[in-house]
Structure formats: C-alpha cells, structure tokens
Write a protein that binds this DNA or RNA. Structure first.
Lengths: 182, 182
DNA sequence: GTCTATAATAGGATAGAC
DNA sequence: GTCTATCCTATTATAGAC
C-alpha cells in the first residue's frame, strides 16, 4: 500500500494554481491531473464530486490559508505595521499581480451557484481583515467598513486590469494607493 | 433567399450578453446558437473562425458602442456634467452591477492571447474617457492619468465583488465613491 | 491510493440541401 | 442565409486491476 504521492495540501495548492490560471471552466480534468501528477481516477478518489468538489475543497483550503495570514497580521503591534503586513501578504499571494484571484474565477464559472456561500464568506473574511486594521488605526465602524470594502474592490479590480492589459504595474500602483488611504 | 433574421448588431449584442453571463469558456456553441436564435451553421457563416471570432467581433462591437458613449460624454459642457454622464453610462451598461464585464471574461479565457491587443485597447479607451473628464476639471496630466486608472480599477473590482457576494450595492457605493473622487 | 482502460457525453466544427 | 444531419475530438466520469 503506497503512501500518498503528495500531501493533500500540496494537491490543493496545485489545483488552486490551475483554477487561478485557467479559470474554473477553462481547467480540464486532464490539466488538473497533469498539474497534480495524479491520474484522473486518483483525483476522483480524493474528490468524488469531481471538478466542483475540487473547487470547493480548494476554496476551503484558501480560507484556512487566509485565516493564517490574517492572524499573523493581527499579531502585529500598531495599525501601520498591520496595514503593511496585510498589504505585503496580499501582494505575495497574488505574486505582485501576476496571478488572478480564485474567487473571481469561481464567481464567473458556470457552477457559480454551488460556490455562492463560501465565496461570500471568503470576500467577507478578506474585508474583515482590512476592517480590523482600520479599527486599530482608530477609524469608526462605518469608516472601517467603507475603507475595507474600498480595499477589496481595488485589489480585485487591479488584478482584472493587470490581466487585461498585461501590465502588472497597475497592481503595484494600486497597492501603493491603498497604503496611503488606509 | 430569406433575409437575415436579425441585424448583425443584434446578433452581436446577444453574443455579448452570453459571453458576459457565462464567460468565454463557459459559453457553449449550443448556448450561443440558442441565445441568438441562429443555428450553429448560421453562426459559422457569419463567424468562420468560430467562437474565438465571435468574441473578437463582439469586442469590436463593444469598442464602437463605448466610442459612442464617450463621444456623447465629451459633448457635455463642464467637468461635472461629463463626469455624471460617464458614470451614468457605465452604470447603465453594467445594469447597475448585475452584469459582469466582457473584458474581464475574455481576459480570463483560455484563448486570452488571441484577445490581447483588443483587450488592451478597450481598457485604454475606458481609461481615456475618465482621463479627459479629469483634464476638463483642471487636473494635471499625471493626476488625470492616476484618477482614471483608479476609476477603471474600481469599476472592474466592484463588478467582481458584486458578482462574488451577490450584492450589487457594492457597485452602487463604488460609483458614488468615484463621483466624489473625480 | 494509484493506475490503465473505457464508457458516455458534450463540445466545436463541417457538409450539403434548400 | 439558414437548416438538418453528421463528424471528430475533448471532456467528464467510471470500472476494475494492483
């Protein structure tokens, strides 16, 4: 009985990269198989629900990853340090604008209904992290909510424009704008 | 010899809606056929290059549509009137956040290379419209460029977040934020 | 837990009649 | 310019051996 070739988390990471790069509808099982190094049957062993379940588990994995980042951010002393850690984390996660957002890709998919709830939660978690930074900086609840929404909107938009124009500098400039605004 | 069932522009409009709703990869020929009311063979008569050519022609059609809007905006007297006309046009075009952006959907597709140049141009055209409004308002060239980029990023991001959370109010709030900033 | 092989279906695309 | 019928390939998914 051979052990698993890859840790489950590593499989989820590779699936996530595939979905991010080619989109949910664009990623085929053949591709998902190739990128993970697992045969199709092995994938179905881990994800009986097929592609949709892969995406769901990837989304849950993303939640856990972000939770880790957000906890790390919250442990910093001072609003400026938290803000910088959060922006740096976001920048690293999206590889400075070269990668698309998984949430966007799933929200655009034909199976979007299936991801509705977890997507909503993921966006809320992201906004929540920015909100807490603003509150630490002394903003009112309403101000914090507004500036957090602004941050998430700007990050998603910058990723779209960077991909559409093939120019990642938009992403860099947007992160800088957010640093000034927060 | 029967006349065309629909004007070409109406066909392009319906194709655009299909690509916007279901994405480039998500939209099948069966769907494109059903939504236009044209059989697959008829579609291939008009678009010998298949789905990719449909998207290309839809993109060109979108360019013409936006050009019309932008010209109309430029004819207004005063920066505030131009700003309001542009934002109202954007809001109407995306049906107040209910519709996704075709540019985003094509930039995310597996055939994205094929749309690279026209996509870049479309984003530039959109940014250009906002830039001209800023210049009319008396901004410097650098300020106008920055605020126009900010506007496009915010519009795209708001559409993504609205779709991802199922809440179009994000889009409304973003448009209002832009009105204040411009 | 992984593989090879295969089934079943949907997708894109074409042929040829009208 | 449009249709019906068809083709071919890719895609999702499963069966069964190891």
């Amino acid at each position: 009985m051979p052990a698993a070739l890859l840790e489950k988390d590593e499989v989820l990471e590779r699936l996530m990269r595939t979905f991010r790069d080619d989109g949910y509808d664009g990623a085929s099982l053949a591709q998902l198989s190739e990128r993970t190094g697992l045969g199709k049957s092995s994938l179905y062993h881990h994800f009986p629900g097929g592609k949709a379940e892969m995406a769901e588990q990837v989304l849950a994995h993303l939640d856990r990853t972000l939770e880790g980042l957000f906890a790390e951010v919250a442990s910093r002393k001072g609003a400026a340090a938290q803000r910088d850690a959060l922006l740096a984390g976001v920048q690293a996660f999206y590889e400075n604008g070269k990668r698309a957002c998984l949430l966007e890709r799933l929200a655009a998919s034909v199976d979007r209904e299936r991801f509705g709830r977890p997507l909503k939660n993921a966006f809320a978690a992201m906004q929540g992290a920015f909100e807490r930074v603003s509150l630490t900086a002394g903003a009112t609840a309403a101000q914090a909510r507004a500036s957090a929404e602004d941050a998430v909107v700007n990050i998603e938009g910058a990723l779209v424009v960077a991909a559409g124009t093939g120019d990642v500098r938009v992403f860099e400039r947007t992160i800088e704008r957010l640093r000034d605004r927060l």
